[in-house]
């Protein structure tokens, strides 16, 4: 069950450019990808609406989950996006 917990380092949180880049990267993958706040309900990482509604702020943690072929590589990419200040 490939999963990563990561702190969002972008000053604007998971909004604007980081949000758009995150969703575009997830949407290109042929596997399911979800994001949740720790203990919260997961939402699709491929939906900009879901990500904006999740409203992740700078310094908050998220849990990214992917299942299937290439999941680890995809998670590495997504973690790199949200870890960038």
């Amino acid at each position: 069950m490939p999963e990563r917990k990561v702190i969002v380092e972008s000053q604007v949180g998971l909004h604007a450019r980081p949000a758009a880049t995150f969703v575009q990267t997830a949407a290109k993958a042929p596997i399911d990808v979800t994001v949740a706040k720790p203990g919260g309900s997961p939402v699709s990482a491929k939906s900009i609406l879901s990500i904006l509604a999740l409203d992740v702020r700078h310094g908050e943690a998220i849990v990214i989950h992917a299942e299937g072929e290439g999941a680890d590589r995809l998670l590495d990419e997504l973690v790199a996006i949200v870890s960038a200040p």
Binding site: A16, R17, A19, A20, T21, Q24, I48
Partner: peptide
């Protein structure tokens, strides 16, 4: 991010 349609 908007001009290139990344948001939608």
């Amino acid at each position: 991010v908007f001009a290139e349609g990344l948001v939608g």
